[in-house]
Write a protein that binds this DNA or RNA. Structure first.
Length: 647
RNA sequence: GCCCACGUAGCUCAGUGGUAGAGCACGUCCUUGGUAAGGACGGGGUCACCAGUUCAAGUCUGGUCGUGGGCUCCA
């Protein structure tokens, strides 16, 4: 071990410190103000406790209360403060453990004789604020197993003793302490409780110990915390905004789709909703012509043998629907397709192929059914019936690189149309229940990694063991207008399926070869994309997607005839337009047009009828004034045909 | 699938054991108006479903289904 180590900071500067210095020591060496605000460190890209001792050269970023990453540390510490508050209010309450979820909330489980009630929340919050005001330092101690046992036994924390047994031998065990409160915890934690700026309890629920119903029921408290009151308020505003944009709410309000218990987790797209769905399909079909794809239509119901052959039956039969006639129910011999790949293998294998015709890009919008577990379905983002913009590319090994290259172009072109500019890329490798030779897997992973390395504009993260059972994949996570990440596109390399379906092609030398199969989708599930897109646009769909592009609002019934003429002309130009024929005041009709998020409202009164003009009003904007109908049509047709995001 | 909560009119919701309510939406009529809600009247509910407790259940209990939040999962 070196006596001094070199710590490189984000600005490129370096500092030499004694080996064994902590993150906090580094901060202190830079300045006292920084040290005061330090909540954690990021060592070589990994978030660590500020008490972590550095023993090797490393790059370090000091995380302060002002950084967004500080939130997790603040909430983790608030979790301990909440547990402390409960123990102070109800001494002797045994604690289980806390955890963070993925939405800026933390939770902690207790053995408590009854559910926590709203009145309890206030008392607990007040107590938490007292503990924060005490500004107690968090102390981290690395301890031996026996020591933990003594401490927790002494404190009557018998649940903790069970948790202790679950920690694998050889793993470092740490205790975090503030005031009288002690928890078995990995960290990281703040310096002092006073660094927690604002806390709020959110809800409570029962929860079985370790999530197993055979175990005892504990009581769980949920809360959130931030560095400041301002950030806490921003959190609640964000929650409100999420509710406002919720695609389930928008789908109902805009009359796009509904759900019915007769077909749980299966969307019914209404006329307006179907227009949007079909506009997405039209987009993909147009691009398919450009990128050389061939669309096919395949069956819904298949002999189960097909899935045994493809490997899906072994891996996923619990998630499949079966479709047997009543007298065959015992056999479960027919199944509804959960995916398209085997169909495409059958089509490819229906005749001999020459290397000259590869790659073949087979596309399919076929309806898929997957028996998603009841607890996992949500709105359009996780459904039991959906279609994908699915395609399988059959190509030679040499063509993998160029094909993936082209896919990157395709994917970014599509995302650009929607304004999805923040895209994160992941490489997922061999999972546990993989089929096929590990050597082939290694090769496939290497091929994908090379494609990723070759692109200057893409950085990626490896997800170990997250690949499909037949091959590794590249996934694309897209951030929507609120910065939430959604997995949409996927590119999956598959050497197994061509083998299982005996697919082949004749190469230039006249000998038989096996093609490689690339599974890919860009929007992913149309349904999920639909939901994500609705929330991304907050329901304000761009003109090319809007179910009703133009609405004509006659001011009085006297100009109804002119209004009908205008709509007729708009429709002749291929636009989706209608007249608001109700005998309501203009203000009412405008309000309704705005509420239904129609991009263009055309107000027509006697003046317009006399001059053959229209008064244009854009969604969420002021009156744009009077224009000739031709000028407005040109403007709308242009926005639609270019798929502009602006009206 | 597991945990918790919820399910009353098309929507948002009120109604804690004693004859089902409001606003919006919808219909009819009056009003014919110039850039975000004109007025009057009216129709509409097996209170998710099935059992149970009770003289009496939207209300209490159990079960089923569905939905929401979270967990696990997502070929």
């Amino acid at each position: 071990m070196a006596e001094t180590i070199r710590i490189t900071l984000p600005d490129g500067s370096a500092r030499d410190l004694p080996s064994g210095s902590t993150v906090l020591d580094v901060a202190a060496a830079i300045g006292p103000r920084l040290a005061k605000d330090t909540v954690a460190g990021e060592v070589d890209g990994e978030l660590v406790d500020l008490r972590t001792r550095l023993t090797e050269d490393a790059t370090l970023r000091i995380v302060t209360v002002k950084d967004t990453e500080a939130g997790d540390v603040i909430r983790h510490s608030a979790e301990h403060v909440m547990a402390d508050a409960v123990k102070r209010l109800w001494p002797g309450t045994p604690i289980d453990a806390g955890r963070q979820d993925h939405s800026e909330k933390y939770q902690y489980d207790f053995r408590f004789p009854r559910p926590f009630k709203p009145e309890d929340f206030e008392r607990i919050e007040t107590k938490m604020r007292e503990i924060i005001a005490e500004d107690l330092p968090f102390e981290r101690t690395e301890v031996g197993r026996d020591e933990v046992r003594v401490v927790m036994t002494g404190r009557g924390e018998d649940i903790k003793l069970i948790r202790l047994e679950d920690i694998p031998e050889g793993e470092a065990i740490t205790l975090y302490r503030h005031g009288d409160f002690v928890d078995l915890c990995r960290g990281p934690h703040l310096q002092r409780t006073g660094q927690i700026g604002a806390v709020r309890l959110l809800e409570s629920s029962g929860a079985y110990f370790k999530g197993d119903e055979r175990n005892e029921m504990l009581q769980r408290l949920y809360g959130t915390a931030f560095g400041s009151k301002k950030e806490l308020n921003a959190y609640f505003e964000r929650i409100e905004e999420l509710k406002r944009r919720d695609h389930r709410k928008l789908g109902r309000e805009l009359d796009l789709f509904s759900f019915h218990s007769e077909a749980p987790a299966s969307p019914f797209f209404h006329p307006r909703g179907a227009i949007v769905y079909n506009a997405l399909l039209e987009l993909m079909r147009e691009k398919y012509r450009q990128y050389g794809y061939e669309e096919v239509i395949t069956p819904q119901i298949f002999d189960v043998e097909l899935w045994k052959r493809s490997g899906h039956y072994d891996n996923y039969r619990d998630d499949m629907f079966f479709a047997d006639a009543f007298d065959e129910v015992e056999d479960r011999s027919s199944s509804v397709k959960p995916m398209n790949c085997p169909s495409h293998c059958l089509i490819y294998g229906s005749r001999a192929h020459s290397y000259r015709e590869l790659p073949r890009r087979i596309a399919d919008f076929g309806r898929l059914h997957r028996y998603e577990r009841s607890g996992v379905v949500t709105g359009l983002t996780r459904v039991r019936t959906f279609s994908q913009d699915d395609a399988h590319i059959f190509c030679t090994p040499e063509q993998i690189g160029p094909e993936i290259e082209a896919l990157f172009e395709f994917i970014f072109e599509i995302y650009d149309i929607f304004g999805f500019s923040d895209v994160r890329v992941f490489l997922s490798t061999r999972p546990e229940k993989a089929i096929g030779d590990p050597k082939v897997w290694e090769h496939a992973e290497a091929v994908l990694a090379r494609c990723l390395e070759d692109r200057d504009d893409v950085t990626y993260t490896v997800k170990e063991g997250e690949g499909a059972f037949y091959g590794p994949k590249i996934d694309f996570d897209v951030a929507d207008a609120l910065g939430r990440a959604w997995q949409l596109a996927t590119i999956q390399l598959d050497f197994q399926m061509p083998d299982r379906f005996d697919l082949g092609y004749i190469d230039a030398e006249g000998s038989a070869n096996q093609p490689v199969m690339i599974h890919r989708a860009i929007l992913g599930s149309l349904e999920r994309f639909y939901g994500v897109m609705l929330e991304h646009f907050a329901g304000d769909l761009p003109p090319w997607l809007a179910p009703e592009q133009v609405r004509v609002l006659p001011i009085t019934d006297a100009v109804m005839e002119y209004a009908e003429q205008v709509v007729g002309t708009l429709r002749e130009h291929g636009l989706r337009a209608d007249v608001d024929r109700r005998s309501e005041k203009l203000g009412y009709k405008i309000r309704d047009g705005e509420t239904m998020k129609v991009p263009y409202l055309l107000v027509v009164g006697q003046r317009e009828a006399d001059e053959k003009t229209v008064s244009l009003r854009l969604r969420h904007r002021r009156d744009e004034g009077v224009h000739s109908l031709d000028a407005v049509i040109e403007r709308v047709v242009d926005a639609v045909s270019t798929r502009s995001r602006e009206a």
